[in-house]
Amino acid sequence: MTRYSSVLDLIGSTPVVDISSLSPKPNVSILAKLEGRNPAGSVKDRIAYSMILAAEAEGRLIPGAPDQVLLEPSSGNTGIALAMVCRLRGYHLKVVLPTNVSPERRQLLVAWGAEIIDSPGAEGSNGGVRLARELAEEHPEWVFLYQYANENNPLAHYRTTGPEILADVPEITHFVAGLGTSGTLMGVGRYLKEHKPDVQIWAIEPPSGEMVDGLRNLDDGYVPPIFVSNHGAELLDRKVVVRPKESIEWARRLTEVGLFTGISAGAIMSGAVKCAMQIPDDQTATIVTIVCDDGWKYLSTGAWSDDIDEVVERAKKIIYF
């Protein structure tokens, strides 16, 4: 076994596993990149470390110096990843967290020593972003990495996730990932298009459920600045929305290939299956999907154990994607 000097060195280089037995078509292979293998448990380890390293390089953060505070809006995984890195680097992290995230996410943040600032659950991630931006203006002394607008978010994927995928799956024809901050899609998408222009980039829109009910009007909407700066509308080839029920069904089906994944991976897998269905019978294709995290943080949703319709109703009120 390789010996590492820091847990931070374990970020990235995640394995890819062939899950084609779940493909609806024999001519389409599906491979999953297991980002839950990152040390803090999700794909967000990559961007958390990347954003902090960049802030340190810029002198905005100094490892070991006292009283350094970071602020970040997060519905879970970025906060957890940042909290782990901050713990190792000696920074104090404040996470603006909607009240309706799964309790495991809240507990993990506490475990890593982060401070939680509640934002209204009914306003979803949008409300968290809005509150964090207000707090950042009030406290310019806090370091606001702001994953939605930080170019080191897509850059982490351009430099690591993208090259890893192309090295492990050179025959890739389609990349399918979830659209949150858009960092994964922008970074991996740009890398793949530069090195293999024919690769199709598919975005899976999270099932928004009732969490968008807090919008007062359409102008409260939000498009991540990194989606705009990376020309997301041109980079993506397709964008499909996935329903909560499909997400949970596919999270369950992923156990058939031995994968206990988060519900977002179920949503993305559902999108990958829709993608596979569009491949003509006389063509072959290789789809790579992202498993953002494992299922542990979602056990309280009953996603694998309860009646699926009850789970779907519950899931509409909880941010789990």
Binding site: S75, G124, Y148, G180, V212, L215, Y222, G262, D293, F321
Partner: peptide
């Protein structure tokens, strides 16, 4: 046809 507001989403 589904109309949805663009919001900050995902496990961000």
């Amino acid at each position: 046809i589904t109309l949805l507001p663009a919001v900050a989403g995902g496990a961000a």
